[in-house]
Nucleic acid binder design. Structure first.
Lengths: 354, 354
DNA sequence: ACGCTTTTTGGGAGCGCTCCCAAAATCTAC
DNA sequence: GTAGATTTTGGGAGCGCTCCCAAAAAGCGT
């Protein structure tokens, strides 16, 4: 039922090779021939079989997106971190006519995980792979590094980092921007609630916190540092832990955490930003949906995906070989939760009236 | 560098065909031969080239997931509708060793859209396709129906519905559950803020609202019905529109809308549930993160993805031909926003103390 | 019109598998 | 040991394309 090159060749009175040349618009085809063939192709609504082409060229025009187990939790919460990265990837792949094969590991046992990685590595359908949250899928990254499948990580991976191309953001600087801002507003007892140490974003942001505190000449009491996950749950716990330390500001390692802080403080009757100022990280869509709106470090998530894809395609198409390490810039978005903005948020306004 | 069947054959002293039989564990291979070949395969860490296999078998073990343009907006908000469906799909594809090709259209102009659909239809890499939000990608569904690529829609599509297999939920019944509950709590002036009429979930939920109101013998004032998008923005607008109608309850077409209502009422000083009771739809993760927690109709999103995939694979593997229409059941989750729960939410507790 | 260069075209081989058929090996029973 | 049935194995053809090389056609200058 489906036609092939040979059929089109017969119908247009030329050879298979000429049809192939027309399709791949090879320069050396006479204009008249080209048009003749093109007409037949259009008439028959012919589309060359990509599988055959793959087999012949050893290229698939497909990249893989791997979302590792841990990271999968992101899908369940209200952060849209992952989907946003994927959108960024799609921005580039659509533009360049690549397909994307999505690998989501949501099994739980590690036997499955091993099998999951095998499937990825041996699936020769992909010209390259983007590993999201490289820090949490070290095994895969190591495997990938052994083969010569081009790949790039999103977020700085552990271990193989310098031999690997990755795209991250300037977490250290972002954290410093946040802390400096709090300091400039007169806060001194600045605590931090951070994500897990396996996550390089978390470690980098924490490093930025320490650096900025030191630069400001502020000593950090270890009890001001609460480490958990990048979740609202951790925010709730962190709020309780830090409240007893009488901190006057908290740097939340992510907006998810910040939202947890906000919830806890709301319940405890602690006023934000009056009693405790909060600065988040990520600038998620929900940062403006909470009360008070979050002051937060903008994280160019979608761009990360797009840039990673561009780098990967360069690698695939052989235009680049050297491992690259990209850190996209961040910037602070000042809203209400830090207390810098004039605007009073409506909760207080209301409570004061009562 | 990569070995092929012939190499393995040579190394194990048998023929290509025998190796192929071993790999596909065809019954007629002597045990001894089988083991010999297996050993070589393991030693060489050989994996057959899936592309060649595809070309020979005309089967790819890959399905496509199409997320159409309009739906893409879901990615940007805090609803995790889409990612959750995709997880459901992955649950099934991982189990069955299928790969998934993700098609995300985030371009804007319609020329792109046409091209996007072409790419999908002519990409012969997919044994079948899952169209998410079929109602919004009618063109694609029509195209797909013309070819004989197996496909399944998530949500009831427009037009071709009865010739098409789709998986949806019982929107009508879900809406009725919500309304009945509000009626049982003594509410009479029940308004509704609903998503767009192009969306069949929206139309079905609205139909359920009308039916339930009629069953309860309550007349619906047309001014109580506000139609927009499935977004918080629409919630904000809807709240303002319905407030002047002095409704005592609102059925929100989605939790996103409900969150918008909550925000607006919070700002206006309208108490929920005392002044206005709210019931949402979807039971998103954020339903428990807002104050008061949302009473809402549970929507088995992930299951929808999993079921759709199972149906698709049956179709692909030829075990089913008749179009099927599945409506997964919903149930009401009672929390705080309807006023049925004893627990007072903390905002009021606080305000009352002041 | 003719030789020479350049462009255009056709066909073979190959990508790495599966599937079919026929040949070889093995088994069975006498 | 042998005929006949059955199991196991090997090799050819084919899936639909690309790529290379050689042959054919066209262009060009005299």
């Amino acid at each position: 039922m489906n036609l092939n090159l040979e059929d089109i060749a017969r119908l247009s009175g030329v050879s298979r090779s000429t049809v192939s040349r027309v399709i791949n618009n090879h320069p050396n085809v006479r204009e008249a021939t080209k048009e003749k063939v093109m007409r037949v192709i259009r008439e028959q609504n012919f589309h060359p079989n990509p599988v055959a082409r793959m087999l012949a060229t050893q290229r698939a025009q497909i990249i893989g997106i791997v979302v590792s187990q841990t990271a999968t939790t992101f899908f369940n919460d209200t952060s849209s971190y992952f989907p946003t990265i994927i959108q960024g990837i799609a921005d580039t792949t659509n533009e360049r006519n690549y397909g994307t094969l999505l690998w989501l590991n949501n099994g739980s046992d590690s036997e499955n995980e091993e099998n999951f990685y095998r499937r990825i590595i041996h699936n020769r359908l992909m010209d390259g792979v983007i590993v999201i949250s490289g820090s949490s899928s070290r095994i895969l990254v190591d495997h990938l590094a052994e083969t010569n499948i081009p790949f790039v990580c999103i977020e700085r991976p552990h271990g193989v980092a310098d031999r690997t191309t990755y795209v991250s953001i300037n977490n250290v600087e972002g954290a410093k921007q946040a802390i400096r801002h709090l300091v400039s507003l007169g806060r001194r007892r600045i605590g931090v609630v951070m994500g897990p140490p396996e996550n390089t974003d978390a470690t980098d942001r924490l490093a930025g916190y320490y650096e900025a505190m030191q630069e400001a000449g502020l000593e950090v009491d270890p009890a001001w540092v609460f480490v958990g996950q990048f979740t609202t749950e951790t925010g709730l716990q962190g709020a309780r832990a830090l409240l007893s330390q009488r901190v006057d500001a908290i740097f939340a390692g992510s907006d998810q955490i910040a939202i947890g802080l906000l919830q806890a403080f709301h319940e405890e009757g602690v006023r934000v930003p009056e009693d405790v100022a909060i600065v988040g990280f990520d600038d998620l869509p929900s940062a403006v949906e909470v009360t008070p709106q979050l002051t937060t470090v903008h994280h160019p998530i979608r761009e990360k995906g797009a840039v990673a894809t561009r780098l990967l395609l360069e690698q695939i198409e052989g235009r680049s070989v050297e491992p690259q390490h990209i850190f996209l810039p961040t910037h602070l978005v000042i809203r209400q939760s830090c207390g810098a903005a004039r605007v009073q948020n409506s909760v207080q306004a209301q409570v004061q009236e009562v």
